[in-house]
Amino acid sequence: MMVVDGCFIVELFRKATNEVPIGADDPVFNTAWMQSALNKDLFLLENQLPWKVIDCLFHCTKEKDKPKSNHLLLLALKFFEIDAFNQDPHANRLLETKHLLDGIRNSLLASVPRSRN
């Protein structure tokens, strides 16, 4: 079940950021309430998949003939529109990510300037 859910999440992020075209009959992107419901559902702690599973699926499904794809966390940040928090998330900071919610949290924490003591 984690593989099926992980594939759905990877494809969802790719379509949301236009890395993969969205079909005219795609129910996720052509149903008014679906994206909002998915945003809320993917933020729930009980729905978190291990990041290693999603990342592995992301790398296994990259097309070899396409230019280098965005980092998975960048796709997730674009999907969730994290800039709505009036912060500039940084996905380039190397922190161990446990799951999607943790990755978003880490990117937001990385955007907060550290105080000097």
Rank of each mutant, 00 (worst) to 15 (best):
M1K: 08
M2F: 04
M2E: 13
V3H: 14
V4F: 02
D5L: 10
D5R: 13
D5M: 11
D5K: 13
D5H: 10
G6E: 07
G6N: 08
C7H: 05
F8I: 08
I9A: 07
V10L: 02
R14K: 15
R14L: 10
T17M: 04
N18R: 13
N18K: 13
N18M: 10
E19Q: 05
V20K: 15
V20R: 12
P21T: 12
D25C: 04
D25R: 11
D25L: 09
P27T: 03
P27F: 03
V28A: 06
V28S: 04
F29S: 04
F29R: 02
F29M: 01
N30M: 10
N30T: 15
A32I: 08
A32T: 12
A32G: 03
W33A: 13
W33V: 07
M34I: 04
Q35K: 13
S36R: 11
A37D: 02
A37S: 06
A37K: 08
L38A: 09
N39A: 03
N39S: 03
N39R: 14
N39L: 11
D41V: 00
L42K: 08
L42S: 11
F43A: 10
F43H: 10
L45P: 00
L45W: 04
L45N: 08
E46G: 00
E46R: 12
N47H: 14
N47E: 08
Q48G: 01
P50G: 06
P50D: 07
P50L: 10
P50Y: 01
W51N: 04
K52G: 06
K52W: 02
I54S: 09
I54R: 08
I54W: 07
I54L: 14
I54K: 06
D55Y: 03
D55Q: 14
D55R: 06
D55N: 10
D55F: 07
F58K: 03
F58Q: 06
H59M: 12
H59R: 10
H59P: 00
C60Y: 03
T61S: 14
K62L: 05
K62D: 04
K62A: 04
E63K: 15
K64L: 08
K64G: 02
K64C: 03
D65M: 01
D65V: 10
D65Y: 05
P67V: 01
K68D: 15
S69A: 15
S69Q: 13
S69L: 02
N70S: 09
N70G: 00
H71V: 01
H71S: 05
L74C: 04
L74M: 03
L75S: 06
L75M: 15
L75E: 12
A76R: 01
A76N: 00
A76Y: 00
L77H: 11
K78Y: 00
F80L: 02
E81M: 12
E81S: 14
F85P: 03
F85A: 11
N86T: 09
N86D: 13
Q87T: 07
D88M: 11
D88Q: 14
H90W: 05
A91G: 11
N92D: 15
R93F: 06
R93Q: 10
R93S: 06
E96T: 07
T97I: 15
T97H: 02
T97V: 15
H99I: 03
L100N: 08
R105F: 06
N106G: 02
S107I: 01
S107V: 05
L109E: 03
L109H: 01
L109D: 01
A110D: 05
A110M: 06
A110E: 07
V112I: 14
V112K: 05
P113R: 12
R114T: 09
R114P: 02
R114A: 08
R116L: 08
N117G: 02
